[in-house]
């Protein structure tokens, strides 16, 4: 059984005892990371983005992100968002899941920034609260359009980022960073971190399972905190041992302090076409944006 299969075993999905909030949190984080970071199912689908050179994909998404940030009109941002949905469709992603994943988190994060702007920006009053102590709160039209613009920008940017991550294996995404002149040593360290993050999550999950299998009844908050402290210490020890072992494994294969990597991507005509279309689309919508007053 592979590690991935092992961590997706039904036992891992069983709910810890009520009150075991730390265990639930760690299990939740592990599950979310596995689903979103380590899953390669979407990246293996035969869609348009999956078949595009990762470097081209990275640069194209960055161009679209820049266009989203520079656009001044809501309709233009919505146009980019619709383009991201079209790309998701062409990449054979499940649209409802894709959209839900993006928009469920945004109200929480976006509201913190967007809600104050509803009341603070001057403009025509749309709704107002009754006077209270000589003051009243009013929602203005410019406040609403500013909040809508903010949420649209965040939603579109997150969608574009999600498209890149979902349709590209992490290994390829990391290598693609070379096109942005990210130093090779940084890319290799990121790759190793990503690799062992999974192993560490796997170990953490197993330690929780092992504890659950030996625990009868409920444990107090104090006991749980004490155990988490011990778990953290053990994991730090294991990480240090592992990093030492990995360094030895690198030395034994000839590592002499300078990382050398392999550039294996080769852009094809269809990749150049994709990049061209992304650039033309971004330039086009920005021209339209500037012509709208």
């Amino acid at each position: 059984m592979t590690e991935l299969a092992a961590t997706q075993h039904p036992a891992h999905k069983s709910r810890p005892a009520p009150g075991a909030f730390v265990a639930r949190t760690v299990t939740g984080i592990t599950g979310a990371l596995e689903r979103n970071v380590f899953s390669v199912e979407n990246a293996r689908l035969p869609g348009v983005l999956q078949q595009t050179d990762p470097r081209v994909k990275l640069v194209s998404i960055l161009i679209l992100l820049a266009a989203t940030s520079l656009a001044r009109h809501l309709l233009v941002v919505i146009a980019v968002y619709l383009a991201s949905l079209l790309l998701a469709r062409l990449s054979r992603l499940h649209l409802p899941t894709f959209a839900r994943g993006v928009w469920l988190g945004i109200p929480l994060l976006g509201a913190v920034v967007a809600i104050p702007s509803l009341f603070l920006l001057p403009g025509h009053t749309l709704i107002a609260t009754p006077e209270f102590g000589g003051m009243r709160l009013a929602v203005t039209d410019s406040g609403v359009s500013s909040a809508a613009m903010l949420l649209a920008r965040v939603g579109t940017s997150v969608s574009l980022g999600a498209l890149l991550i979902l349709t590209t294996r992490w290994a390829d995404l990391l290598k693609a960073l070379q096109v942005l002149h990210v130093p090779a040593v940084f890319i290799v360290v990121l790759g190793i971190t990503y690799r062992y993050l999974f192993l560490l999550l796997h170990t953490t999950n197993n330690m929780f399972l092992s504890r659950t299998s030996r625990t009868v009844g409920q444990t107090s908050g104090f006991e749980q905190r004490r155990w988490i402290g011990a778990l953290t210490g053990t994991l730090v020890g294991k990480s240090l041992k592992m990093s030492d072992d990995v360094y030895q494994a690198m030395l034994s294969r000839g590592f002499a302090g300078e990382i050398r990597t392999f550039a294996s991507f080769r852009a094809r005509d269809q990749d150049r076409l994709f990049l061209g279309l992304a650039a033309v689309f971004a330039a086009g919508i920005l021209l339209v944006d500037r012509s709208m007053m």
Binding site: R169, A171, V246, Q248, A249, A256, F262
Partner: peptide, 20 residues
């Protein structure tokens, strides 16, 4: 798991020859 520290098997196998 100690030996396979790269994102893919290909990268891992290529690591040694590249360092040479």
């Amino acid at each position: 798991d100690i030996q396979l520290f790269s994102p893919t098997v290909w990268d891992d196998v290529a690591f040694g020859p590249l360092q040479m």
